[in-house]
Amino acid sequence: MIQINNLRKSYLVNGTKVEAVKGISFNVEKGQIFGVIGKSGAGKSSLLRCLNLLEIPDEGEILIEGRDITKLNPKELRNIRKEVSMIFQHFNLLKNSTVFKNVAFPLEIAGYKKDEIDSRVLELIDLVGLKDKKDEYPANLSGGQKQRVAIARALANNPKILLCDEATSALDPLTTKQILDLILELNRKLGLTVVLITHEMDVVDRICTHVAVMEKGEIVEIGIKDDVFKNPKSKTLKQFLQSERGSKVIVLEKKKDKAI
């Protein structure tokens, strides 16, 4: 589904070149939920943003269903972006548009007729469980509801791939769980391939089938999630697993305190 070969991306920061992604290669197969985990600054966001060319890589190939998207002309690129959707940490909804209009946006720019748009939008809003909110503006929604709108909007053009850029990092734990359940449901129902980046172990643990661990622009561990988590090799993953266990222990102890 997605093949990434020797991907490199660097930025100029105050005149000096900083390499964010250092020659990464990996594949994502159809139907996988592929998680990339790493600390802030590990390069995971740059990596993800290369997959729909929000960032233009310096070097390397990105093949989506066999087509190298780095070699497309602007029009072809716009079309491929309709197949590779994205959701964001801060939702990025149109603030002066209602829920309905936000979800209709990708359909309007794709040139669908009004009645087609109307029925598709209602279907999508229903799918993410926001039927009664269709005429609300984003300012009146909770974080979880905003992300649901963003998901509905991302799904409007029937994408094959959904990219999630820290999609639950601005949400509380309960809402995070609900959004993850929704993504999982969409993955199963629609066969949607998901690539997500996060610094929350819990997210990967809950829904990912596969995982890659990033450190300083490189992938240091990759594979089926259960295998990788059972036998962590990298410093990052060991630390993450430890702190997660740590937090679970704390929760248990707190519960015990209350019980006493």
Binding site: F88, F105, I109, A154, L163
Partner: peptide, 11 residues
């Protein structure tokens, strides 16, 4: 970010 979202949707 809003502009970026629009780009990512193929605008």
């Amino acid at each position: 970010g809003i502009v970026e979202a629009a780009i990512s949707l193929g605008a």
